[in-house]
């Protein structure tokens, strides 16, 4: 089993070694647009999460972008 894992890791690494970052810094103007943010209002995003988590059984896995403010 360990040999198999090592083999998979080796193949994966050698396959990835030729891959270079495919989006250059000067190609990121659209990504920098505020409309691309998952949550533009962190206070409101955290509050919305709170509304759901108080009324649904599920929790977590929603990402940090929406609550990245230290606010609830």
């Amino acid at each position: 089993m360990k040999v198999l894992l090592a083999l998979i890791l080796l193949v994966t690494c050698s396959a990835c070694s030729g891959i270079q970052p495919w989006v250059k810094p000067y190609e990121r103007q659209f990504l920098a647009d505020p409309v691309m943010q998952f949550e533009r209002d962190p206070v409101a995003g955290a509050y919305t999460e709170h509304v759901y988590q108080a009324r649904e059984g599920a929790r977590g896995g929603t990402g940090g972008g929406g609550v990245g403010c230290g606010c609830n």
Binding site: F38, A46, E49, H50, Q53, A54, R59, G60, T62, G63, G64, G65, G66, V67, G68, C69, G70, C71, N72
Partner: peptide, 14 residues
């Protein structure tokens, strides 16, 4: 959600 929000804070800009 307290922990969720605080964890979000700790990985603020994904």
């Amino acid at each position: 959600w307290l922990a969720a929000a605080l964890l979000g804070l700790c990985c603020a800009n994904a």
